[in-house]
Design a protein around this nucleic acid. Structure first.
Lengths: 139, 139
DNA sequence: TTGAAAATTGTAATCATTACAAAATTAAAA
DNA sequence: TTTTAATTTTGTAATGATTACAATTTTCAA
């Protein structure tokens, strides 16, 4: 698979050694835009890499997140979630089923009062509500 | 204190019985716009209400949050935080000291693609960066 | 005054995450 | 290639926030 080569290069460009485990996590996140939790990632990869440890998955997402290769999402009270899409976009969480989706931003214009001169580096946009399925059920 | 009467009325209007504990938590959140954690709230109130249990604080913020009296903030990987300000405003978290501040919104214009017809109910805006103190230290 | 419902409390359980040390792997030096 | 050091992975144990639950207390209405 030459997809692996891309991931390998991507990690190397961030000075992250492309171990089997790291490539697998990165690959999984790039192919599954579902904002998975650690458990989901671990559950999906443990068959491909039978020796995989959940601690390793924790270590890897930490490394990837600190280097900016992926994003950590704080939208759920239970688990952190991870996202390989690092360009700016909003997230939506269904308050009923817990599903998290991407919402591409078409237009964004925000101005906030900042008298304390806080040094702003990132902006995160989270929407909450009901997904289509849950909305219909609740009727 | 006639402040208590306001809080009492506020809770009653939301059909929440104004117990001593609930009034104290609501009062604390209204007076301390610091987005405290459960531990902070409990730590501050346990002297005034010596019988107070941390479980009660959990129960109360849940009740208040479900009724819309307060907001639950998902901005920190460790703890949930609570905010009595329920009008729309953004939050800022310092990536160094962890402090959370309010940022009043002067102007907001967002349009997102929503092909899945997700039923959007709320929007949360989170900024992250460095507060003034931490910014200066890091130099 | 009494009894039912609601709220509070303390303890135990759960569960996500982190700490840590040992084992395995990789890269670099000789 | 062999040796050595650094890095990564792994499993287990610890931590810490939150929840479950049952007992107690308080409140409210009959």
């Amino acid at each position: 698979m030459n997809n692996n080569i891309n991931i390998q290069k991507k990690l190397q460009s961030l000075e992250i050694r492309p171990s089997v485990q790291r490539m697998a996590v990165m690959d999984y996140l790039m192919k599954h835009r579902t904002h998975p939790t650690i458990d989901t990632i671990y559950g999906a990869l443990q068959y491909k890499i039978p020796t995989l440890s959940k601690t390793t998955v924790y270590n890897i997402v930490k490394t990837l997140s600190e280097s900016g290769a992926i994003q950590t999402i704080f939208i759920d009270e239970k688990n952190l979630r991870y996202d390989a899409q690092t360009e700016q976009h909003a997230h939506f969480k269904c308050n009923s089923c817990g599903m998290v989706a991407d919402l591409p931003i078409k237009e964004l214009q925000v101005k906030v009062k900042n008298p304390e001169k806080l040094s702003i580096e990132e902006l995160h946009l989270y929407y909450k509500g009901l997904c289509k399925k849950c909305k219909n059920k609740h009727k």
